[in-house]
Nucleic acid binder design. Structure first.
Lengths: 126, 126
DNA sequence: CGGTATCCTGCAGGATACTG
DNA sequence: CAGTATCCTGCAGGATACCG
């Protein structure tokens, strides 16, 4: 014991921050969601479904997710080449999390209302 | 029916994206977590607990969270001024979500392992 | 088809200084 | 104490072009 001191990560006394970094970094949510919803699919399909992402960024994020073990990449050495991505077992273990997120969506209109209240109550105030 | 076409938000066919934007935008997690853990507290306390955040950014995020109805700000017109922040009812409704996140932390070492495997297996490969 | 390689840009967020 | 006000910078991510 001793060397895995965890270094008490600077910005976070917050134990969930590491998970957030992995799961909710930019673009990862739509990618994982899409893979989870539509199953194994090719690069181009993902590109078409996540309409505003560029191939460069899609590649970057997929690599990151693959490295983190959340996504599995399968390369088929054919002509033309075919690559398929699917969510891994570990990735699938996020499902309850995503479900919880989806459930919380019922509160979105409360957020909207709060924003309206805040905005036309002239805040920020002293 | 009809007018709430949802506009099929460009980047997301993904229904959880809006929640992610609200709850997991930069710094909001440690702030909400801290407020949830240590209860109502003053600006300075938050600043000290979230060690690497600057006052400017802390203010920005707190305002955002206040506007979204997740945090309540109370201003006491004393000398010196005293301001307290606490998590709102709506904010507290995120607790199960955070719990789910915390639970998933058990998988962090799997992620670590996956990274090690990926890295010293010489990937990315064709 | 499934990516790289380059170049470029906006803007989140840091540093620093000041105030009601 | 609890913020603003300024200024400045890095780098995530867009646009575009090309390749095995």
């Amino acid at each position: 014991m001793g060397d895995v001191a965890k270094t008490t990560a600077p910005e976070q006394a917050c134990p969930i921050a590491p998970v957030v970094d992995i799961v909710f970094s930019r673009w990862t949510t739509p990618i994982l969601w899409t893979l989870n919803e539509f199953g194994r699919q090719r690069f181009g399909e993902l590109e078409r479904r996540i309409t505003t992402i560029t191939p460069k960024v899609l590649t970057q994020r997929l690599r990151q997710l693959e490295r983190d073990g959340l996504v599995v990449r399968t390369y088929h050495a054919e002509v033309p080449p075919r690559v398929e991505y699917e969510i891994s077992e570990l990735g699938r273990s996020l499902a309850p999390l995503f479900a919880a997120l989806a459930n919380w969506s019922v509160n979105l209109d409360k957020v909207d209302q709060a924003r309206r209240d805040y905005d036309d109550s002239g805040r920020p105030r002293p």
